[in-house]
Design a protein around this nucleic acid. Structure first.
Lengths: 193, 193
DNA sequence: TTACTTTTTGAACGTGCGTTCAGATAAGGT
DNA sequence: ACCTTATCTGAACGCACGTTCAAAAAGTAA
């Protein structure tokens, strides 16, 4: 009896998701047990099933929330010049991803642990995000501001490059996030100009 | 008795490694059982322990071999102009990684399943590889051919960008590997020039 | 205080895990 | 033909897994 019981659904629910997020990012979906998540929350394993039908849904919900939030937050004003929009995208991507390293890590590493259906849904959301960047590049090419062989390749190259920041950047290091962002803006701009 | 016994060490040994490579890449280290690897080889689980002291060593050996081969294969001639050396690096990286998608996937995804010691050894090898590229960038900057804010950042950005090719490129698609490589060469060159 | 609902416990289920090892089997040397 | 050595089998070990569920506890409303 490590914990009181009663109507704590609105407290325990988020805590389950937070614990799962942290632990999945730390050890990987397959290596984290429901018992480990429960222990982190301070509850027995059985209680988790008040908040998720199963472990797979827990993973999927975390990924879907992340992608949905990403799409809800990214902002693009098609009336602006393409180079300014590209700068904005670079800054947004780096900032957004840096703020939630665990969710980002999971979204990239645990795709293969999704069922076929869930994978397809997450992939669809990712493609929407990629399309946003590609549209900027296309508009820039059409306006004669950018010069890119294939906008799809450039899109994937830029996103891979930007997401890579998360694997090495640590606040308090040699460079600030703003300095890093500035250099990436520079490289991206030059790569497509 | 699914299989004859005797001195088949030189046959079974490599087959164990190949099966482990494929299965780890497919399902993830934690999700692949020794029994599954053994079944792929056509042997009982116990027989695997003639070829590896344990599962962890199997993973580490695969990673270390991959990194060692990478370092043994990459070629760089410091007497050449930096821009040509950079072109060579881009082509090499894409080609080498495209040829062994399973090993690359494992090398990036299973780092966290290594013990502390093993992780440090793999990381050290990776750093050597990164340093090779950074040296090219440094030489280019010194020669006035490149203009880069921070060569370490540019190094990581370029590698992330190039490695990303493996996540989407499939032979027989819209573009050939040569075309893709050409565009990446272009983008990388412009990003640092 | 009582009646009712929500939440949690604690035990149990069948299954599969990494690893070990004695005994069986096959290959190679003589 | 025999002996030695390398290789593999098959069973076993203790343990942890995801999930279920009756019973208990705690909150809510009257």
């Amino acid at each position: 009896m490590a914990r009181t019981a009663g109507s704590h659904s609105d407290i325990t629910g988020p805590r389950v998701r937070e614990a799962a997020l942290r632990l999945f990012a730390q050890g990987g979906y397959a290596a984290v047990s429901m018992r480990a998540i429960a222990a982190e929350v301070g509850v027995q394993a059985g209680a988790l099933y008040n908040y998720t039908p199963d472990k797979q849904s827990l993973l999927f919900d975390l990924m879907e929330s992340h992608m949905t939030e990403l799409l809800a937050t990214v902002a693009d004003d098609p009336t602006q010049p393409a180079d300014a929009r590209l700068d904005g995208f670079v800054g947004f991507h780096i900032r957004f991803h840096h703020a939630r390293p665990d969710a980002v890590f999971i979204a990239y590493m645990e795709l293969r642990n999704l069922t076929e259906d869930n994978f397809a849904r997450v992939e669809a959301l990712r493609r929407v995000y990629e399309d946003g960047l590609e549209q900027i590049l296309r508009d820039g090419v059409a306006a004669g501001v950018f010069k890119v062989g294939d906008t799809k390749i450039a899109t994937l190259a830029i996103i891979a490059m930007l997401t890579g920041v998360n694997t090495w950047f640590r606040a308090g290091g040699r460079l600030s996030l703003e300095e890093v962002t500035a250099q990436y803006r520079d490289m991206v701009r030059r790569a497509v100009t």
